[in-house]
Computed example of a mutant assay.
Amino acid sequence: MNQFIGTGVALITPFKEDLSIDFDALTRLIEYNIENGIEYLVISGTTGESVTVTPAEKKQLIEFIVKINNGRLPLVLGIGGNNTTSIIEEINQTDLTSIDALLSVSPYYSKPTQEGLYQHFKAVAEASPIPVILYNVPGRTSKNMEPSTTIRLANDFENIIAVKEAGNNVHQYLELLRTKPDDFLIISGDDDLALGVVLAGGAGVISVIGQGLPKEFSNMIRLGLAGKAKEAYKLHFALMPITAMIFAENNPAGIKAVCKHLGISNDHVRMPLVPATEKLQNQIKKALNDLGKS
């Protein structure tokens, strides 16, 4: 579980102009993050536009990232959705040999009860041969997984090792930290709240902005884990403007604009998403310049 303490990044899927996957840009992104101190990589999360990546492309992405990473960092793979049976089938059919944990999003659209959420993740845990990180993101799923459900799952299944909590709810974070088992990790899924969560006892973050500014963001989280709040908040305040900007229109359009201005990749996204507006692109460029990035 120590593999998942610190900063993980939810990798974008770079696209060429024809919207095919840009594997050269993906290589640059991975190397940039490894060289600048990120602790682990997350494949095929929301930020990776997982809902518009085909199953064949997902398989390509997994194989490619495993090859480029070459065992240097732990890898987390997103497998989740609102059809429990199909998720179990995907787990069973995916080669997880080089994957260190699954990140499984709470069922969306269907709006199950808390008991439905429990039974869903029970099935995922029983099917998974590797550790599972729960992912609660009610802003996208329309259903909050309450702390009592998360903690019930943590207590009942040894291979459910963590939750990526992304409800942007400070009270819910604190309730999870107050009631969690000692060996269960609370991972922030909110870049703007990550430092506060870490200082309160959280394990770190799965970040979006972290892949654009890996050195600065991962240093901030490490300072927080060491209890060096004053130094950590200095970085937090410097990163606040651009962290807000990347979510101003949609994710991952914002972080793809950051990667474009850093020369890592283009900013193409697949519909129904659209690229960041010119206004936001200019704001992001100025914010990066203010941070000493070009």
Rank of each mutant, 00 (worst) to 15 (best):
G45E: 01
V66D: 02
I65E: 00
I68Y: 08
V42A: 12
A56P: 06
I38Q: 03
D22F: 03
S50I: 08
E49K: 02
Y32W: 15
E49P: 10
T46K: 03
V51D: 08
T47Y: 03
I21C: 06
L41S: 02
I62N: 05
R28L: 06
L61H: 00
L61V: 12
Y40G: 03
N33K: 13
P55K: 06
Y40M: 13
Y40V: 09
G71E: 04
I34P: 03
N69G: 07
N70Y: 14
T46S: 11
P55M: 13
G37A: 11
T52D: 13
Y32P: 07
K59G: 06
A25H: 00
T46Y: 06
K58H: 03
I21S: 03
T47R: 01
G71P: 05
E39G: 11
Y40T: 11
D24W: 04
D18R: 08
G48T: 12
K67C: 11
G37E: 11
V53A: 04
I38E: 00
S50P: 03
S44C: 14
K58S: 02
A56K: 10
K59H: 14
L29Q: 03
I30F: 05
I34G: 04
Q60E: 10
P55I: 10
Q60W: 09
E31M: 14
S50T: 13
T46W: 02
K67N: 07
T27M: 10
L29P: 01
A25L: 01
N36P: 13
A56R: 10
K59S: 11
Y40H: 11
P55L: 04
I43A: 04
D18F: 12
A25N: 04
G71Q: 14
I68T: 13
L29F: 09
I21Q: 10
G37H: 13
K58P: 00
I34F: 08
V66H: 01
N33S: 08
E35V: 14
I30G: 00
Q60F: 04
Q60L: 09
Y32I: 12
T52H: 08
A25Q: 01
I62R: 04
L41E: 01
E35W: 12
E35D: 15
N70V: 13
Y32A: 11
I21D: 08
V51N: 12
T52C: 09
V66T: 07
K59I: 15
Y32V: 14
G48F: 01
N33E: 13
I34C: 06
S44T: 07
E63H: 14
L61N: 00
I43F: 07
E49I: 02
G45Y: 02
G37D: 08
E49L: 02
G48M: 02
L26T: 00
N36D: 09
V53F: 12
F64P: 04
F64D: 03
I43W: 00
